[in-house]
């Protein structure tokens, strides 16, 4: 199992959040939206210009900019 950040994940790739390496406002917003370690996520799609990225977690869809996605490490399945 490899750990990569969300920016480098492919569309439809799945994985489990390993860590969210940021504090402050951004960190709290990410966590408030459910991006906490142990959460299963799947990349749902990307905007036409590749950024932002849409993820599926806990049964809903969330969008992040790539520079925000950089801060989240995911253990990808396969």
């Amino acid at each position: 199992m490899a750990t990569i950040n969300i920016r480098h994940m492919q569309v439809n790739q799945e994985g489990t959040i390993a860590s969210v390496k940021v504090g402050g406002e951004l960190g709290r917003r990410l966590r408030d939206m459910g991006l906490v370690p142990g959460t299963a996520i799947k990349i749902q799609g990307r905007a036409p210009l590749y950024d932002p990225v849409a993820l599926r977690l806990k049964g809903f869809t969330l969008t992040l900019r790539n520079n925000e996605a950089d801060l989240i490490d995911v253990e990808v399945n396969g």
């Binding site: 406002e25 951004l26 990410l30 939206m33 869809t61 969330l62 969008t63 992040l64 900019r65 925000e68």
Partner: peptide
């Protein structure tokens, strides 16, 4: 401001 935004159904 963080973009973190929900795409509602």
């Amino acid at each position: 401001t963080p973009f973190v935004m929900e795409l509602p159904p």
